[in-house]
Design a protein around this nucleic acid. Structure first.
Length: 565
RNA sequence: UGGGGCGUAGCCAAGUGGUAAGGCAACGGGUUUUGAUCCCGUGAUUCGCAGGUUCGAUCCCUGCCGCCCCAGCCA
């Protein structure tokens, strides 16, 4: 399922430095981390960065990493996402072993910690409405006001909180608040809400609870209960760290984890926020979470990205605290790097142009046996039939070739890869003037592998035997958005206007060499000179294959030609 | 105008008092029956800006500028 190539060089970053120091100083005997997604959507490449940090460092430092679902909001979370998330993490190549947990596993202990806080006079039951709480919170520049319920007695708070638990109040009538400081310049410290009443069943605890803890109360304590030493999260939680520390300090926590923040991944020409991904899926702008244009892990997987390419990418971009905007080409290049070494080669003609080799006998065929991989002879050879009628790619022929075009043109010669040199003698057109066929002659003396190949020809093109080739559908993908930062030009930030209308092109009449049918496993192929293609795991049928273009090969000629014009 | 962060080459990113790692991209050259791959070579007199301390500052101090995050009973 996943290829387990380990990263080349050990990464060094500020978080690993802290871990290294804490282990060296004896502050911790063993590293414990956790990857804590909320099951309200599927994972994307930004999560891969976090997964690789948490699971990756655990592996590196011989520690452990918990796979923990942060499921404290039954209104937004769904069990179906759990399965997808677990599949994505294991696809990436990480194993949580026995350490699959849920914040909801700790609801009872969490409740006890809440009572402890109340008993210590550090939390109170608030009976103002949500609106009133908002009104009295103050603003960024003005302090908030104390709640009239702030000084309820411990006994009253305890009674009320227990009644909240037993369901005696309606949603929204009461909440539990920490008693910290309504004048704090950090808004998170202005008596944050710890528990709210929600009379809805929870995916895992069903109707056991009608009060649910909020993130700030849950997260640090869950970390502590799991013995997490380093709680790694993204920058937007930096402001929450004082609260994280406060809760752990005020309660008899089993240990004190340290929260460390790093910057989240931003990629150009795509969106990675869960909200936006959900919108793309729900409004039908894409085919689903696993649409190959989506930078979700399921989308990348379906597109043909090897897990090791995603890991290489995460390693390459590093970990820091600065805002970043990584170019999509970095990701693409990681795919090329991995695939070049592993993908079996095959010839595939995307836009077939028929070529008749007029001096090749009609009933003759022969078979070439090129290597499946130019540098890995152990991958063996394939059989490629050759005959009088072949297809070449339309892009490899020009009636009026530009300078330095060393492919086929009237009167010019090219080598058919692994086969012969041919010369274009005649161009056949249809009524509309479109080129429909080429008449060529071949030179038998130039047979591939022959001692004296006769002459050197600069151009080499791919081809397939017309009567032997397999027709397949190919889907060419491009970036989903036309702007580096979707929505940045729109006053309302509407990113949907920037969707690239040409992000998918379907070619239904592609011809590939018959050897592709021998593939037993789903694997990514390199269509020589063109790119990497992966059989679509959803729409591909045994007799009607569909290939997704994972990524093109680097195309120096395309760049050159663009510069020439 | 409150609080928390960030600012090192096109994009990432180390270094944190001793004279700017590395990767990707780009460019030049070589190999090549994939215009691919591979190989070799090239880039910051300078670390947001301005002062200061120091024999010496990207690193310490002061001031300024720019960008990001925070006012959910979301995570």
């Amino acid at each position: 399922m996943s290829d387990n190539e380990s990263p080349a060089l050990p990464a060094t970053d500020f978080i690993r430095s802290i871990i290294r120091d804490d282990l060296a100083s004896g502050k911790h005997q063993r590293l414990v981390t956790r990857f804590p997604p909320e099951p309200n959507g599927h994972l994307h490449i930004g999560h891969a960065k976090s997964i690789q940090l948490n699971f990756g460092t655990a592996e590196e430092f011989k520690g452990i990493c918990f796979m923990r679902f942060d499921d404290t909001n039954p209104l937004k979370e769904e069990e179906e996402y759990v399965e997808g998330i677990l599949q994505d993490v294991s696809w990436l190549g990480y194993d949580w072993g026995e350490r699959l947990t849920y914040a909801s596993d700790y609801f009872e202990q969490l409740y006890e910690f809440a009572e402890e806080l109340i008993t210590k006079g550090k939390a109170y039951v608030e009976s103002q409405s949500a609106e009133e709480i908002r009104q009295t919170r103050g603003t960024l520049t003005e302090p908030g006001k104390n709640s009239p319920f702030r000084d309820r007695s411990v006994e009253e708070n305890l009674t009320l909180f227990r009644q909240m638990r037993t369901g005696e109040f309606d949603d929204g009538t009461h909440v539990l608040r920490a008693k910290i400081d309504m004048a704090s310049p950090n808004i998170n410290m202005r008596d944050p809400v710890l528990y709210r009443i929600r009379k809805v069943p929870h995916q895992r605890t069903a109707n056991q609870w009608c009060i649910y803890p909020l993130y700030d109360f849950t997260h640090g304590l869950s970390d502590a209960m799991e013995g997490v030493t380093h709680s790694l999260c993204t920058l937007e939680f930096e402001d929450h760290r004082p609260l994280y520390d406060w809760i752990l300090a005020e309660v008899s926590a089993p240990c004190i984890p340290r929260q460390i923040e790093f910057s989240r991944l931003n990629l150009r020409y795509t969106v990675l926020s869960k909200r936006k991904l959900i919108q793309l899926v729900e409004e039908g702008h894409v085919g689903g979470w696993d649409d190959p244009r989506m930078l979700t892990l399921s989308g990348l997987r379906r597109r043909g990205y090897p897990a090791s390419a995603v890991r290489l990418f995460c390693e390459r971009i590093g970990i820091s605290k600065s805002e970043n905007n990584i170019d999509m080409s970095v990701l693409e290049d990681c795919a090329r790097e991995v695939l070049d070494k592993t993908a079996p080669r095959v010839m595939g003609v995307l836009k077939p142009l028929k070529v008749v080799i007029t001096n090749y006998p009609e009933d003759q065929t022969e078979e070439f046996q090129p290597a499946r991989h130019p540098k890995n002879p152990e991958m063996g050879n394939r059989k490629v039939p050759f005959s009088r009628e072949i297809y070449i790619d339309h892009d490899d022929f020009r009636e009026d070739p530009p300078p330095n075009f060393f492919r086929l043109a009237p009167g010019k010669e090219v080598r058919l890869r692994y086969a012969y040199v041919i010369r274009c003698d005649e161009v056949i057109y249809d009524e509309t003037g479109r080129v429909t066929e080429l008449r060529c002659t071949y030179d038998p003396a130039t047979r591939s592998g022959a001692k004296a190949e006769g002459r050197k020809v600069k151009g080499i093109i791919h081809w397939v035997s017309a009567k032997d080739s397999i027709q397949v559908e190919v889907r060419l993908y491009d970036r989903l958005f036309a702007k580096p930062i979707p929505g940045s030009d729109d006053p309302e930030g509407n990113f949907l206007n920037d969707i690239n209308q040409d992000s998918i092109e379907v070619l239904s009449d592609c011809q590939v060499e018959p050897g592709i049918m021998t593939a037993e496993n789903q694997e990514v192929f390199q269509f020589e000179r063109v790119g990497y293609y992966y059989p679509d795991p959803v729409d591909s049928l045994a007799d009607a294959m569909v290939f997704n273009r994972t990524v093109t090969l680097r195309d120096t000629w395309a760049r050159l030609e663009q510069e020439q014009t």
